[in-house]
């Protein structure tokens, strides 16, 4: 398939410009072929399963059209799970966005190997999260963990004195921040890198203070990228599964965990499509967030 796509590409290259209109029309069909393998794959392995989920969610086990699974989302455990997921996503977004932005602010001033290493480390922390991260944190912040002991014995701070437990909501929030903050670094750093040294110097020569520079230039310039990064963080926190599953054994009310439980057979026969409805609910939230993201990007691009 690589052969055909590249060949058609090259023939277009050489023929460019000299084609009569009729041939250009024909070319529209052919240029579509170049991305066909890509479309086929993403269609079959991404859109098709999602379409099946949607279809199942609106049918009961006797293949009758029903919205009962959706109605169930607004009550009981399902409602709590959506609230829990929303809170986890929102808190981890807020904390990680601030930490990540501060790191970006400092990282852009480093050079060479230091910078490369920090960005590479952020990339790895983000993409190798999940299970290893969860166990590392259970080990470090558990009752017997070294961090817990040091905080208690050296700083006299008993982190288990309050609401915190590595296996409850706050523990999961802590771990989420450890992969969300690096994610923020990766997606937000291009915007910070685009801040030109000339703007800072122009501000200085024009008589502006550091605060004026932040207020009139940095914050307005970075705001769109910051907001859209936050939205991506929210979506990522909302839909993460592995970390929460490994840490809570499925006991904390979160949507992905509930879906996991339903998929793994802990389900009554008349609720066969409940998992599908939950999945659709998640997709809906994420698509809404993504729509906001696209809106912010469009508005900022227009400027």
């Amino acid at each position: 398939m690589s052969q055909t796509s590249l060949q058609s590409t090259l023939s277009h290259q050489t023929a460019e410009g000299a084609l009569p209109v009729a041939k250009r029309m024909f070319r529209l069909d052919k240029s579509f072929l170049g991305i066909l393998p890509f479309l086929a794959l993403i269609g079959y392995f991404f859109f098709y399963p999602l379409a099946v989920v949607f279809n199942e969610s609106i049918h009961d086990s006797h293949h009758h059209l029903t919205a009962s699974a959706y109605k169930a989302l607004f009550g009981g455990d399902y409602r709590n799970a959506f609230i829990g997921s929303f809170e986890l996503a929102a808190y981890s977004m807020a904390i990680s966005a601030i930490i990540g932005a501060l790191i970006c602010w400092a990282v852009v001033k480093t050079q060479g190997h230091a910078r490369k290493l920090i960005i590479a480390a952020a990339g790895v922390l983000t993409s190798t999260g999940g299970i290893p991260l969860a166990f590392s944190f259970i080990a470090a912040f558990g009752q017997e963990g070294l961090v817990t002991k040091i905080l208690l014995n050296v700083f006299h701070w008993d982190i288990y004195g309050g609401a915190f437990d590595i296996y409850n909501f706050w523990g999961i929030l802590l771990v989420y921040c450890f992969f969300q903050a690096p994610l923020m670094v990766i997606i937000f750093i291009p915007a910070v890198e685009n801040l030109k040294v000339e703007w800072q110097e122009a501000n200085e020569t024009l008589g502006g203070s550091r605060i004026a520079y932040l207020r009139f230039v940095v914050i307005p310039v970075l705001a769109p990228a910051f907001i859209s990064s936050c939205l991506l963080l929210f979506a990522s926190g909302f839909s993460a599964y592995a970390t929460a599953a490994a840490m809570s054994n499925g006991t904390i009310p979160l949507v992905p965990l509930l879906i996991g439980n339903l998929v793994n057979g802990e389900v009554l026969a008349d609720q066969a499509n409940q998992g599908d409805a939950l999945a659709m609910g998640m997709i809906l939230v994420c698509v809404l967030v993504f729509g906001l993201y696209a809106l912010v990007m469009r508005v900022s691009r227009k400027k």
Binding site: I42, F46, L50, V53, S239, P256, F290
Partner: peptide, 21 residues
Amino acid sequence: LCLLPIVIPVVSLAIGAQVAM
């Protein structure tokens, strides 16, 4: 299209894959 897999939860994809594949 390449942004969507980031946005759509993997769990939803898994539940569909079970039935669709």
